[in-house]
Simulated assay, not measured.
Amino acid sequence: MSGPVDLHSPAVREFWRERHLCTVTTLRRDGSPHLVPVGATLDPAAGLLRITASRTSAKVRHVLAGARQVAVCQVDGARWCTVEGLAEVRDDPESIAEAERRYAERYRTPRPNPERVVLEVTITRLLGSARLQA
């Protein structure tokens, strides 16, 4: 069984601290989905998910063009979780530093990138496998 999961449940929080790659789906101008692998970090206290990206990437261009609805999913065997929400592109130094710090905690220190921006997703829905619904 799968369905809504609680952003603040210990199982969900732990799953999003483990090192897993994710995918983000954005929408092209024609409405077709664009899906790419990303590293993502969950901030339950703020109700946000963050993705660092280059400002020239397609996912960033889609959001800047107004396609703000995104979905981010991670899977590990029978466990999965999808975050849906509205994305904004942040390019201020504080937002980038916070996203880099969180990325380093979950994955590794990100390589230098002067074109780095942050896709900051305000979470509107969280879905997951039965193993995360406990």
Score class of each variant (00 low, 15 high):
residue 90 R to F: 01
residue 105 E to T: 10
residue 79 R to V: 15
residue 67 A to T: 08
residue 102 R to G: 09
residue 73 C to E: 05
residue 74 Q to K: 11
residue 98 E to H: 12
residue 101 R to M: 01
residue 56 T to K: 15
residue 80 W to S: 13
residue 60 V to T: 09
residue 102 R to F: 00
residue 97 A to N: 08
residue 75 V to C: 14
residue 81 C to Q: 07
residue 87 A to Q: 01
residue 67 A to G: 13
residue 81 C to P: 01
residue 52 T to C: 06
residue 96 I to S: 04
residue 53 A to W: 05
residue 80 W to P: 13
residue 96 I to M: 05
residue 106 R to K: 15
residue 71 A to T: 07
residue 90 R to I: 03
residue 70 V to D: 14
residue 93 P to K: 10
residue 65 A to V: 14
residue 100 E to H: 14
residue 102 R to N: 07
residue 56 T to A: 11
residue 72 V to Q: 08
residue 63 V to W: 14
residue 67 A to S: 10
residue 83 V to C: 13
residue 79 R to T: 07
residue 54 S to H: 08
residue 66 G to S: 12
residue 74 Q to V: 09
residue 53 A to P: 02
residue 79 R to H: 12
residue 101 R to L: 06
residue 62 H to V: 01
residue 71 A to P: 00
residue 61 R to E: 07
residue 61 R to I: 00
residue 106 R to C: 01
residue 74 Q to T: 13
residue 99 A to F: 06
residue 105 E to A: 14
residue 94 E to S: 07
residue 100 E to V: 10
residue 51 I to C: 09
residue 73 C to V: 01
residue 80 W to M: 11
residue 75 V to D: 15
residue 84 E to Y: 11
residue 103 Y to E: 10
residue 85 G to P: 05
residue 94 E to Y: 01
residue 88 E to P: 00
residue 105 E to D: 15
residue 84 E to R: 12
residue 64 L to W: 05
residue 58 A to N: 06
residue 71 A to M: 04
residue 85 G to D: 08
residue 63 V to D: 15
residue 51 I to D: 03
residue 54 S to P: 11
residue 59 K to F: 06
residue 100 E to Y: 02
residue 66 G to Y: 10
residue 67 A to P: 01
residue 67 A to E: 04
residue 64 L to T: 02
residue 86 L to F: 09
residue 85 G to C: 10
residue 71 A to L: 03
residue 81 C to V: 07
residue 53 A to C: 08
residue 95 S to G: 09
residue 69 Q to R: 10
residue 82 T to G: 00
residue 105 E to M: 15
residue 52 T to K: 00
residue 84 E to I: 00
residue 59 K to M: 02
residue 53 A to H: 01
residue 74 Q to I: 05
residue 87 A to R: 06
residue 72 V to L: 05
residue 82 T to C: 07
